[in-house]
Amino acid sequence: MDKELLLYNYFSKQLTADQQKLFEDLLKSDSDFKKQFDFEKDVKEVILNQETVKLKNKLVGFEKEISKDKSVRKLPRSIYQKWAMAASIALLMGLGWLGYTNFAGPNYNDLYQENFQGYPNTVYTITRSDSDQTRERDAFVAYESGDFKGAADGFKTISKNSPTNYLDFYLGMSYLQLHQLKQAKTYFTNTINGKSNFVDEANWYMALIAIKEENKATAKQYLMQLTAADSYNQAKAKQLLEKLD
């Protein structure tokens, strides 16, 4: 067989089993073939390295743009005054509304919608090479694909006999996604009381549930748990506390 074609098939991942065998034999017996292979492999490595550097630069660029977007968006001075006037008028008009909302209290539904985000599967990596069709794997596959009923059923089956400390949390998340708040609360409470690594996250979602249930005092109680430095969603918790006050 044409050696060049063999190398082409190798690098484009099209070697058949027979060709693979021939390829390996040639690497051992034909020094020119081995030399050509090493050269192409080096070219591949060099290009990979070059593209990695380009990607890193791109990511640094993305990050700069994100930081720029987040920094205070100062309006040019010339148009600032116009906006200031418009804002004054809006402020006067808004005072009436403000008075109304102050009496009416926060809009719990909006607060919930603004702050709720599903929690990704951060504990179980479903790899291609997984040959074991474990129940845990199936449950996380269901969770990732948005089948929260299947996920909840799966997690519940394995949680009884499993020492892993994250199942209660993911059970809580699955029920929350299904809007079954009572069950969600049970499992988040288990998470908080147990030796789980997801205590902060469970406090956060318990606060959101309390907000959904328009229970300000309970929401604040859970949010207070997250105001310590390095807590999960610390900044968001503080913001929410301000909005609830």
Binding site: N121, R128, E144
Partner: peptide, 23 residues
């Protein structure tokens, strides 16, 4: 992100069996 992407490009990850987040 770079490691993930390198693995996609080098063919170590041939198809997604998890979400990108999980990787």
């Amino acid at each position: 992100y770079i490691i993930f992407y390198d693995n996609v490009m080098s063919g170590k990850i041939e198809r997604f069996t998890s979400s990108v987040s999980t990787y």
